[in-house]
Amino acid sequence: MAADELPTLAEFAAKRKVDLSQVQGTGPDGAVTYRDVDRAAAAPIRAAIEARRARRAARREVEHARAEGREVVARTIRDLFPSDYSS
C-alpha cells in the first residue's frame, strides 16, 4: 500500500472506534502514531483477557479452599467419632 493510500490518522482511529483525545502519543514530541491507535484499540481486549484469567484463578482458589474445608470437616468428624471410622 502506497503512502498516499494510507488513511489519515483520524480515519484510522475512527474505524477502530478510538478517541484520539484519549490516546497518549509516543511519536516525536508526543505525537499520536498509528501504533498508538492500534494499542488503544486493543486495550479493552487485553483487559477482558486479564479479567477472564483473574476469574479463572479465583475459581481455582475457591475450589481449593472448598476442598481444603471438606478435608478439615472430615478430619474433625473422624477425630470426634474415631470408633465409627476405624478399620
Rank of each mutant, 00 (worst) to 15 (best):
A14R: 08
D36T: 10
F12G: 03
I49Y: 10
A43W: 12
F81A: 10
A47Y: 00
K17Q: 15
A40W: 05
G69I: 02
G27Q: 04
G69Y: 14
P44F: 10
I49T: 10
E11L: 06
S21V: 02
E61P: 01
A42E: 15
Y34P: 00
A13Y: 01
I45M: 12
T26P: 04
R75Y: 06
G27V: 02
G30S: 04
A67P: 00
L80A: 13
R39E: 12
M1N: 11
P7L: 13
D4P: 00
A74G: 06
L80Y: 07
R78I: 14
A65C: 05
I45V: 15
P44M: 14
Y85D: 05
D38I: 13
R70E: 11
A51G: 11
A65Y: 10
G25F: 02
F81I: 03
V32G: 00
P44Y: 13
A48I: 04
T76C: 07
R52Q: 13
R16N: 15
L6W: 10
I77C: 05
S86L: 12
A13R: 00
A14W: 05
M1G: 14
A57Y: 04
R55E: 14
P82M: 10
I77K: 11
S21Q: 03
A65R: 13
E11M: 09
I49L: 15
D36V: 09
E63A: 09
A13M: 02
A14H: 07
D36M: 08
H64A: 13
Y85I: 01
Y34L: 04
A40D: 03
V62M: 12
E5G: 03
R46D: 15
R78N: 07
L80H: 10
G30M: 04
D38R: 11
P82L: 09
A54F: 06
S21P: 02
D36A: 08
E50I: 12
A51E: 15
A2T: 15
V62R: 14
A41G: 13
V23M: 01
E68G: 03
Y85N: 04
V18Y: 09
D79V: 00
A2G: 14
D36Y: 08
T8Y: 04
A67G: 11
S87N: 09
P7S: 05
L6N: 05
V73Q: 07
